[in-house]
Computed example of a mutant assay.
Amino acid sequence: MTAFSLDTGQIAWCAELRTLAAEHLRPLADKGEPGHVNRPLVAGLGRLGLLSRLFTSGALDLCLMRESLAQVSTEAETALALQGLGAHPVHAYGTAAQREHWLPRVADGTAVAAFALSEPGAGSDAAALALRADEDGTGGGSGGWRLTGEKCWISNAPAADFYTVFARTAPDAGARGVTAFLVPADRPGLTGTPLDMLSPHPIGALAFDAVPVTVDDVLGEPGQGFRVAMNTLNLFRPSVGAFAVGMAQAALDATLAHTTRRQAFGGPLKDLQTVAHRVAEMALRTEAARLMVYAAAAAYDEGAPDVPRRAAMAKLLATETAQYVVDAAVQLHGARALRRGHLLEHLYREVRAPRIYEGASEVQRTVIAKELYRAAAQCPEAADRPRGAGSA
């Protein structure tokens, strides 16, 4: 099963991706300004055909792309992932007109996409969205709305060309009262400001001052926006784990090289048992996380019923593992890893955010527990079944 063993073609493709990232993408990333959309880098991803693969590949291929790019250039990985996250709802739920207008531009890197779900008061609790979509009749009497409120912590904001926006069309209806909209950045009343964050990729806040939208801007069906959001996150959560695994592998590779050549206490660091055991633990956790990510992605591609649980487990384990591995790598490198510009200094800043975005680790645990209890309630006899006389 490919969830646990990649075939030779997949292994070769991953190696090719790392080469492309090193030769073509990292130079573009190095020229970018931290915290800002790097349009030459996005265009480079388009020229290499990687952005178009976002709409033709399955979840496992998406994970392989993100993991491979992250090992070489986290900036390239993030630029690819944000295009996919922002545009996937258009690909999966958009009208023919929406798809024809935006997806070719996303694929060639000339349009930057963004996924606008989080709000100042509704981050982890996505069902508590407060951005209002008030009916005003601009869409022919019953299909027009005005968006009023705020979005915050939005990747690629405020420089994106369009946003997948989730707004409340039915007050006091919880998750059932949310609608997804495709909102071009040039709509009147839509403004944004960048936020200066620990991680170097672009993040901003958006303000909606009676921004007009119509039925032609709806993604999916009115009132079904929460489903659009959750189905998108079920696809991308394992690939967030793949991003984390890529960072963990980069930190592990750097540690293997450093502890082999660094001399201390009469020999290379790798000969110290405490160092060797720490490196073994780093490798063990990285591989375990990788396998869980691949398994979750394969489950998504197969249409398995337990995708929400698997996706949450994969993101949780991989992001927590990456935090451990990068921290351990910094410790084994010593002060040099804290110097600005060092690979591990960069990874140390990058690795913290994935434990929060697209559902914090605590949210993933809640999802896992909820799915486990739901499954148990559907098969109550399993818990009450008496042990057989011959059971051990």
Results as ranks from 00 to 15, higher is better:
23 E>C: 03
143 G>T: 01
162 F>S: 07
175 A>I: 05
36 H>V: 14
173 A>L: 05
27 P>M: 07
64 L>C: 10
281 E>S: 14
62 L>E: 09
381 E>K: 01
339 R>C: 03
361 S>C: 15
201 H>N: 11
91 H>S: 14
316 L>N: 11
325 V>Y: 09
259 T>C: 15
360 A>W: 00
48 L>P: 01
164 T>N: 10
264 A>K: 13
109 G>D: 00
90 V>T: 05
313 M>A: 14
300 Y>W: 13
373 Y>A: 13
24 H>F: 08
384 D>I: 12
262 R>K: 13
202 P>K: 07
47 R>C: 08
36 H>Q: 15
246 G>E: 12
233 L>Q: 10
154 I>E: 03
334 G>S: 09
232 T>F: 04
285 R>I: 04
230 M>V: 15
375 A>P: 00
353 A>P: 00
77 E>S: 15
102 W>F: 11
377 A>F: 09
370 K>L: 13
105 R>V: 00
329 A>Y: 00
9 G>T: 13
386 P>A: 11
56 T>W: 02
81 A>W: 12
89 P>C: 13
255 T>I: 03
391 S>G: 11
6 L>Y: 05
218 V>T: 08
120 P>Y: 05
247 M>F: 00
8 T>Q: 14
292 M>Y: 00
282 M>S: 01
83 Q>F: 07
103 L>V: 03
5 S>Y: 07
388 G>Q: 14
325 V>A: 08
329 A>V: 02
7 D>S: 06
340 R>G: 12
317 L>A: 12
211 V>R: 13
4 F>V: 06
137 G>P: 08
139 G>F: 12
304 A>C: 12
2 T>W: 07
138 T>L: 15
200 P>G: 06
362 E>A: 14
164 T>Y: 12
68 S>D: 05
216 D>Y: 03
277 H>W: 10
145 W>M: 01
214 T>I: 00
110 T>C: 01
329 A>G: 04
286 T>C: 14
137 G>A: 10
236 F>A: 05
346 H>Y: 08
270 K>I: 12
192 G>W: 01
319 T>L: 02
346 H>F: 06
116 A>P: 08
387 R>S: 11
132 R>Y: 01
289 A>H: 03
346 H>N: 13
32 G>K: 14
255 T>C: 07
225 G>N: 10
278 R>L: 03
200 P>V: 01
92 A>K: 13
311 A>E: 07
39 R>A: 01
253 D>K: 08
224 Q>G: 03
4 F>N: 10
378 Q>G: 14
278 R>G: 05
353 A>S: 08
34 P>C: 09
82 L>I: 04
35 G>W: 01
141 G>F: 09
8 T>C: 05
198 L>P: 05
6 L>D: 08
197 M>K: 14
119 E>Q: 11
281 E>R: 15
184 P>A: 10
258 H>A: 06
234 N>T: 04
275 V>Q: 04
81 A>C: 10
156 N>E: 15
220 G>C: 02
98 Q>H: 06
68 S>K: 01
366 T>K: 09
252 L>Y: 10
283 A>M: 10
193 T>D: 14
299 A>L: 10
335 A>Y: 09
244 A>V: 00
362 E>M: 11
391 S>F: 04
15 A>G: 11
337 A>C: 03
367 V>N: 08
193 T>N: 11
392 A>C: 13
342 H>W: 06
312 A>I: 05
257 A>C: 09
246 G>L: 10
364 Q>L: 03
70 A>S: 15
242 A>R: 02
139 G>I: 15
379 C>P: 00
300 Y>M: 07
251 A>C: 04
